[in-house]
Amino acid sequence: MEPVLRGAAMYFFLLIVIRVAGKRTLAEVTTFDLVLLLIIGESTQQALIGNDFSFTNAFILIITLILIDIGLSIIKQRSGRLDKWIEGTPVIIMKDGAPLTETLRKARIDETDILEAARKLQGLERLEQIKYAILEKDGGITIVPKDEYR
């Protein structure tokens, strides 16, 4: 029973902590973020398996985590409300070339992030060429250029 409880507790703990950390925290993965993720993975592994290095323990843990993930995806599909809280929603952060400053502040991103996405994804040069910038659920920024710049 213990591996199942450990697995479930760690799954929901990570789900909550990573969710409240914010979209941009894990979407903008720098070299240091990668190291941080490895450290989190290492800490999680020790808490999950404890002193039990048996094949059975690993087997039960993996099944537990996969089953919770499947269960949660089914629940999310049926409940839009839960889906919103777990996955979040996309947010418009720029409209007609004007950044929505309050939304940007809450999302902890700035105009340079939007410009970077605009350059990378659409080859745009200026903010005024952007019709919409959207912070997606996964933390990525989508750029919709104005009609004349498409």
């Binding site: 929603t89 996309p90 947010v91 418009i92 409209k95 019709k131 919409y132 959207i134």
Partner: peptide, 9 residues
């Protein structure tokens, strides 16, 4: 929202 369809809330 404007010209864009989005599940913003």
């Amino acid at each position: 929202v404007g010209d864009i369809e989005i599940e913003e809330d």
